[in-house]
């Protein structure tokens, strides 16, 4: 029971972080039709921004959070203006390749700025690193803080899309871009916002993950691939699907590592994804959607 609860809570926590990466991918994909292969590098870059703010400049953790999310948002907007808008008239392959190029640019830039400070940088914990026992369940406060933060960010994002005019504009564009244009919505501005929002959520995920992991310029790909897997599990266009997918990937990874072998941690989620996609090629939540219609 002790091991199970530890693995379950650990899995849920990392799963919530994968879910945030997946939400960023889904927000961009829903609005623009592009898979942003630089999402992991945006996550990494924002993690370093948070590290610089908190560790180098000695500012408080909430300020590091703001620096990472606002920095991510601006980075998303700048890359859309510089890289993607110029390619707007090319086909989707060109745009996807641009995201791959952006990933390398971000990784190289991170190496140039932060690479000389050691291969792996640690981010100080924001709570006590000692686990505490609640009944038979072992709880790591740092994990709980990251989980609570991830849930709060998901709720803020859900509220943004449900209640704000900009969120509704983004949903409308994702639903039917032609109709959005006809009522006077500027699609290009929505695309810019989508890249900004996707990068901002990568930043938020990074600053929550930073105290649980080590920061290094190549860390982005691992988070991207798990986030991508979560997004695919959820159907690539469903925000709630991304959350379910992220939690599943995190929990399976944790359980496989704990009960089978640590080498299975990387493999097990993908075995599940293969199985899910064989049974349900459009993602886990598509069964529900089919019944809806």
């Amino acid at each position: 029971m002790l091991l199970f609860s530890y693995l379950l809570l650990g899995g849920i926590t990392t799963g919530a972080l994968y879910a945030l990466v997946a939400i960023g991918l889904v927000v961009v994909n829903k609005s623009t039709g592009i898979i942003n292969f630089a999402q992991g590098e945006l996550f990494m870059f924002c993690g370093f921004l948070a590290w610089m703010t908190h560790v180098q400049f000695g500012l408080a953790y909430p300020l590091a959070f703001i620096a990472a999310t606002v920095g991510g948002f601006l980075l998303g907007i700048v890359t859309d203006r510089l890289a993607f808008r110029a390619l707007a008239k090319t086909d989707i392959v060109g745009l996807v390749l641009a995201t791959v190029g952006l990933a390398f640019v971000l990784r190289g830039t991170a190496r140039m700025i932060w690479g000389g400070k050691g291969d792996y940088l640690s981010f100080p914990p924001i709570t006590s690193p000692e686990p505490v026992m609640i009944g038979d369940i072992m709880v790591v406060p740092q994990q709980m803080a990251a989980l609570a933060g991830a849930i709060a960010i998901m709720l803020v994002f859900a509220a943004f899309f449900r209640f704000t005019r900009i969120g509704k504009i983004m949903r409308a564009t994702a639903d039917n871009a032609k109709a959005a244009t006809l009522v006077g919505i500027s699609i290009q501005n929505v695309y810019t916002l989508a890249f900004g929002a996707g990068a901002a959520i990568a930043g938020a995920a990074a600053v929550l993950a930073a105290p649980l992991t080590l920061l290094y310029p190549d860390m982005g790909f691992s988070f991207f691939i798990k986030g991508f897997a979560a997004a695919v599990l959820g159907g690539l266009t469903s925000l709630s699907g991304a959350v379910v997918g992220g939690l599943l990937v995190g929990v399976i990874e944790s359980m496989a590592g704990g009960y089978i072998d640590s080498s299975m941690m990387e493999v097990a989620p993908f075995l599940l994804i293969m199985l899910v996609l064989i049974i349900c090629p459009t993602g886990l939540l598509s069964l529900h959607k089919t019944r809806d219609v």
């Binding site: 509704k168 039917n176 032609k178 109709a179």
Partner: peptide
């Protein structure tokens, strides 16, 4: 537009509301 082109996953209220987006 032809074929209505409503935003299918959004509510009727939201569809009307966004008509006034400008």
């Amino acid at each position: 537009p032809q074929g209505r082109e409503v935003w299918p996953s959004m509510s009727v209220h939201e569809n009307l509301e966004l008509g006034a987006v400008t």
